[in-house]
Each structure stands twice: as C-alpha cells, then as structure tokens.
Design a protein around this nucleic acid. Structure first.
Lengths: 247, 247
DNA sequence: CGGTCGGTTGAAAGCCTTCAAACGGTGTGG
DNA sequence: CCACACCGTTTGAAGGCTTTCAACCGACCG
C-alpha cells in the first residue's frame, strides 16, 4: 500500500496549510475540523466537475491526484493546477460557484466534498477564516501565475523540471515525506497537458533528465537524484510557494 | 488628447466593476469612494513594484496600461496580467503584501496608490466589501488561468486574437467605448511578453490578422474590423470574464 | 540632424510536433 | 493458465511553427 494520508487527516493537512500563511486560533481550527464533509471516490480520468457547472460544494483532495483544466475548441487540454492530498481544489468556488474550469481526477482519487454553505458560515462567523480563505486563493493564483511564466518562457526541459520541483516542495508541505521521493500518480500525457507539451516530447524530456542523473518518474513515483541539479535546470526558486509576506 | 477617463473616475470604474459581480450598498460604495489615494505618474517601461518587495498599498490604474510580470533567470519576461484604467492591479497584495511578481507600466501611466490599511479597514468594517475583494481576486485568477490555456495550447495566431478579444471586452466593461475600437498603448515586444512569443513573430501574426481583414493594431489603438471572424480565430468565449455565478 | 525606439521583412536554424510503430505490464475472458 | 486487449511508455523519422540573426525603415526627440 502506498502511504496515503488517512481520510480524516485531509482536513488536518488543509488546516495546517492555512496555518502556514494565516494565524488561526484553536476556536477557528475546531470550526474547520467540524466542517461537514462527504467522501467521494473517482476512477482515473473522470471529471469531478464540468466546466460551466454551478456547484454547491468545494473539493478537498484526500487521496490521489486532482487537477483543474481548460480546453480549446479542438479539444486540446491544459491543466491549470494540480492538487495533492490535503489541498483544496476549488476554494474560489465558494465565492464564484460557476466553474470557469473543469476538475478532473488524474489518478483514482477520493475527494471530500465540503458544502459552500458550511464554508461561508465559517468564514462569516470567523473573520480570521475568511482572511485565510482569501489568502489561500491568492496563493493558488500565484502558483498559476508561475505556471504561466513556466509555459510561456521556459523550454521543455526547464519547464518539466520546474513542475517536478514545485510538486516536490508542495508534497513536503503536505506530508512529512522526504523531498527527494514522493508519490505522483500522473501519466506522461497528463504531464504534457500540464506543461503545454505533447506526451511524446514529455517522454523524451524525462528520458533526458533520467540520463543526466537528475530525476526519475516511474510507476507514479518521483525520485529526485540530484536536487541541486534539478533546481538549476528548472531555475527553480520556491519563494512563491510560501513567501506571501502575510502573518 | 486621448479620451482617458478622468482621475477621479478610476475609483468609480473600480466600484462599478466590483458591482458587476458583488452587490454593494450605497454605504459600501461611499466607503470605497472615500478611500484615500495618492496619484503617481510613471513613464513607459518603468517598474512600479519590483518582485519580492513588500508593499503597503495597492495600485489602481487611472491612465495608461499596467501589467504584472515574472522573469526567468536569463531575463526572459512573461506578463501575467494586463490592467486597463479602472482596474486594480494587485488587490491580492492586501492579503499578501510580498509581491510574487513585478508590476510595470507598459505605457506612460498614472496610478492611484491605495493604502492596504484603508482597504483592510473597509473590508473589516463591511463584509460585503471583503466578499467583493475576494471575488475580484478570484476573477483575476480566472483570467490568468485563461492566459495559461492560451499560451499552453493555442498557436500564435489564435493566441494573439484571443488576447485582443479579451482586452476588447474588458475595455468595454471599463469604459463606454465601442468594442470594435479601443485604446491599447502596447508595443509588439510587450505583446510578445504577454503571449510567450518573440516580437518578430508577433509582428508577422499581426500582419496576417491585418491582411485577413480581422483587426489592426497601430499607434496604441486596436481597430476590430471583423469581430465574428476574430472571435472564431481566437476560439474566444468571454464567459470567464463575467460568469462567476455570484450575486 | 543624428540617435533611439518600434516596426517590418528575409533567410536559416531549431525546438517541438506529428505520424507511425513497437514494447511491456495489467486485467479480463475463454 | 494462456490469449488477447488495452493502456501507457518508448523510439524513429519527417515536417512545421516559431525563433534567431540581420538588416532596413520610419517616426519622434533632443
């Protein structure tokens, strides 16, 4: 068995993530822990939310890998974000229920559905929670902005390395796992959809990174052999993942 | 003189933009109108905020054109957003004062600086304002996400057309100007930095669009000759600009 | 009037895509 | 238990979109 976090801990990880940028008292934390949730299971490649749908709940990843994506008219797909267990996929939906992008399970995943009503209640009652939610949306947006820089201005090798570095750091934020090895149940095609590349080219790039002794991605697991080298190849600076300058 | 909105109206446009997705009572609107602001002028190509800086104010564009951007290690630049007069460039900074991206004046611009303290005060006092700010950040993020799809999955022609369509719609939201003609004081190099293209290629694409009779960009002004054709070339669907499904 | 900036155009090179085919692992049905 | 199908990975070859390099032009400004 892969050491997924247990179901109940997804909320705890979420709270811990919020605490990384916002001060939450024990009262607020309790309120969040008492959030009513419904567990749902999804097979790989299945949409959890379709674009344009109006939802009444947000999705917290508990196991697996979940992403938001947009699509062009001719069906080409672009992932806009990826979410590891413990991360909220669509907190923005609390304040904008009409989905501007679709949500998809990249691997078999279990998702905790949290009603918007409960989230609004919590944020109405506790201003600190409202601020933390707002801030979390801002952090999310900062990551998307980095992806835009990545896709717009880095070549395929740096781009791929950058994504792996980001997910390595986020994975460590989320679980106590070592940064040089973490679960990433993603196919090369999905990776291409996250990087704006074809699956064929992703394959060649990964081969290159492997042969350079930088990293390996196999059977849903990333092994980083040379963190220093990988961050250099990626021009990676993780400041955007933490440094919001907030309390 | 180009018919820029007068200085005092930038705040009004901002309020009107907020009202498009959030219900604000007259009391809230008054509070926003009373926000203390400082007017600043910037020449073209000058940075208003540098990356990593911690700021104590947000920037509301009054005249000109302002954008956020990120940079790779070797100096390649990627605009992450563009902001027309009446739009707030960095509302997220209220809640995350450390700038994860730089802010630049693409053309000679005047900017209203609004202290974070005043914005926080207003949003603390009026929950409707807090919700509107949050929602505005979410809308902003939805636009960045569309750019990511655009840069990641559309070819240069569609990509360029898409940007112009988006700005045309946003320009109309912001002023009463007709959609088929609006001010866009941007160079082809800056456009390349927004689209993940070289200035040379932007030039060729614009030439193509001009020869197809779709649009013209000259001397800081876009003239759309065939809106239908342009949206088709761009696969443009403006739903993401408005449809948040919020009140 | 020279200098700078932005726009325009041509030619060659390069990164990535497209098209095709083969391989390995896994699950299912005979 | 094996055959087969399916999915994801891997590799080769050709083509194309975009970049790079270079040069020239026009407008604006000091």
């Amino acid at each position: 068995m892969v050491p997924y976090p247990s179901n109940s801990s997804a909320l705890e990880i979420f709270i811990q993530r919020l605490s990384a940028h916002s001060r939450l008292g024990s009262e607020e934390q309790d309120a969040l822990l008492r959030l009513p949730v419904t567990l749902m299971r999804y097979p790989a490649h299945v949409d959890i939310v379709r674009q344009g749908t109006i939802t009444d709940h947000a999705c917290l990843v508990s196991e697996g890998l979940v992403g938001r994506y947009g699509q062009t008219a001719d069906g080409k797909r672009q992932f806009l974000s990826l979410h590891l267990p413990g991360e909220m996929v669509d907190l923005p939906s609390v304040v904008a229920p009409q989905a501007t992008s679709a949500i998809n399970a990249l691997a078999p995943s279990t998702v905790m559905k949290v009603p918007h009503a409960a989230l609004r209640e919590a944020s109405d009652r506790y201003p600190a929670i409202a601020a933390a939610f707002w801030r979390d949306c801002v952090l999310d947006a900062a990551i998307v902005a980095q992806w835009l820089l990545n896709v717009g201005r880095r070549d395929a090798r740096a781009r791929t390395a950058h994504l792996v570095c980001e997910l390595a750091v986020r994975s460590r934020n989320v679980s106590a796992a070592a940064r040089d090895q973490f679960s990433l149940p993603i196919t090369q095609e999905q990776m291409g959809d996250a990087l704006g590349l074809t699956p064929v080219h992703v394959n060649r790039i990964l081969k290159g990174l492997r042969e350079e002794g930088l990293m390996t991605l196999a059977r849903g697991r990333v092994v980083i052999e040379d963190w220093r080298g990988l961050t250099t190849a990626a021009e990676f600076d993780g400041a955007y993942l933490n440094g919001l300058g907030a309390i």
